[in-house]
Design a protein around this nucleic acid. Structure first.
Lengths: 155, 155
DNA sequence: GTAATGATACTCGGATATTGGTTGTCCGAGTGACCGTGG
DNA sequence: CCACGGTCACTCGGACAACCAATATCCGAGTATCATTAC
């Protein structure tokens, strides 16, 4: 069980898009900034576009730009955009299969195991939703030359 | 990103092992109870044995039995036993690669993105560690005939 | 009758295929920019 | 000098392969049981 690399790529790329300013930036430049596969980063950016976190501009001088300010983008938004909204723990209802399932009456309530796992997952989601990309950007701005480096790398 | 099925299998199997009593139960019977692949459940049980959540008894009349009371087994223990202790979000340090990486001085602090993701993951771990299998068993004991069904299915 | 002994059946344990999903690559559709031409 | 039209290069977008890990399966190693036999 490992989170897709695309999440890390997307997070850094979104931060870069903010630092560079408003204009659209091509996926090739964004990939070069961190030595990533351009085509694959492009695919991740399309996922972000579908989630309406970025807007895509076709044609020459096109590319991707932020759709909203970083303050309104949470870590959960990015994770869901890349990974999808499926739950980590997916209950297969094995309690209704096999010998035990045949002997038991059809269960009424929810599966206790599933409910417990869902509770834990909920607090993960809450913690992800509580942190916005602006918070992370504030950390990066501790060393103010970062912004200059990003801007010069993306021109 | 999806949690392995083995976690669900392990959780239900551990609960069954508790309900059936102290004697060892073969992986075949445990699998039949929920209609699972016997060999694959056996593999998961070996993982639980390495984590010292169950003890394995070889030979005829052998099988697996609980190594400690359910009160001392948390959801986190089971997840780590099956999935391993690796983190969901694994930082690749892409901030040190590509153009930006070459232009930047070697970073001093930890990656802000990684730190934020780790915070969220920590609260997931905390929530998993806060729930023991005894808590789940208490939920199941709402309908007291469950125990009888499990015992009759595992004899 | 009792104890030793060998065969046997049953279990765990790990080595070996198979499948599904992530990762990576490629080419086509579409669009804005640029250049040349005519008014 | 300005407006218009055609060509072009550049970008996104989705379809297509490669790789890795989870899933599933199989066979060998080890052990308690049971029957048999000798004392």
């Amino acid at each position: 069980m490992r989170m897709a690399k695309g999440v890390e790529w997307a997070l850094h790329t979104l931060l870069n898009l903010d630092m560079v300013g408003g204009g659209p930036v091509g996926s090739g430049q964004l990939a070069e900034a961190h030595g990533l596969s351009p085509s694959y980063l492009n695919k991740q950016l399309q996922q972000l576009a579908r989630a309406e976190l970025v807007v895509s501009v076709p044609g020459p001088r096109g590319g991707f730009s932020l759709a909203k300010p970083l303050e309104t983008i949470t870590l959960l938004d990015v994770v869901v955009a890349i990974e999808g909204a499926a739950e980590l723990f997916q209950c297969t209802e094995i309690r209704c299969s096999g010998k035990i399932g045949e002997l038991s009456p059809p269960p009424k309530g929810a599966c206790a195991v599933s409910a417990a796992m869902r509770r834990a997952e909920q607090s993960w989601h809450d913690a992800l939703a509580a942190q916005s990309l602006a918070d992370i950007k504030a950390d990066l701005d501790r060393s103010p030359l970062v912004r200059q480096i990003v801007r010069s790398a993306l021109t």
